[in-house]
């Protein structure tokens, strides 16, 4: 039986949007898929050794459940983003949701291949020394080399 393949493009760097790439990649790997994630633009934040800087913002996110209804104008107040971030983190912990670091570590263990987009690394002047070990650098053509023969391709 040929090994199935999953290719993911991870473009978001917020606490909430960091989850889908790592959840799907780790689960696919557990199911026997060979997995590659291409990190580009804000998704590069997910490669940093320390993920403590990732945040979630209630601003421009009307679907985010809030403990009490709040007018949009309130969302710009100082401290709102920090509050939303710590609320989400404590809720995740209480519900037994894994931390991003844990899910990423499981991906690394399962040999999920992670590629950082060279162009956006240069554009935003990321220091690749801040990334976890084992990250490769590549461009769009490198992504298609794997995606072209993948069974599933996701843009997140």
């Amino acid at each position: 039986m040929d090994e199935k393949k999953l290719a993911i493009v991870a473009t978001k760097g917020t606490l909430d949007w960091g989850y889908p790439p790592f959840i799907l990649a780790s689960t696919a790997a557990a199911l026997g898929y060979s997995v590659e994630i291409f990190f580009t633009f804000y998704g590069l934040q997910l490669l940093k050794k320390d993920l403590g800087h990732l945040r979630v913002s209630p601003l421009g996110n009307p679907a985010m459940p809030m403990p009490v209804p709040m007018p949009t104008l309130m969302m710009v107040l100082p401290g709102m983003e920090g509050m939303a971030t710590s609320m989400m983190k404590s809720k995740m912990k209480a519900k037994g949701v894994a931390s991003l670091e844990e899910l990423r570590e499981l991906c690394v263990e399962a040999e999920v291949r992670m590629i950082a987009c060279q162009m956006t690394v240069d554009l935003f002047e990321f220091d690749t020394a801040d990334f976890i070990d084992g990250i490769e650098l590549g461009g769009a053509a490198a992504f298609f080399e794997f995606a072209g023969e993948s069974d599933i391709t996701l843009f997140i």
Binding site: S26, V97, A98
Partner: peptide
């Protein structure tokens, strides 16, 4: 107490340390 996808990932890991034919019991909430 664990949530998606941890039960599956832990199961995969546990099975990896077992021999063919052996049975793994998983308790989840």
């Amino acid at each position: 107490g664990l949530n998606c996808p941890l039960p599956i990932l832990r199961t995969k890991k546990a099975l990896g340390e077992m021999n063919a034919g052996q049975v793994l019991k998983i308790v989840a909430t």
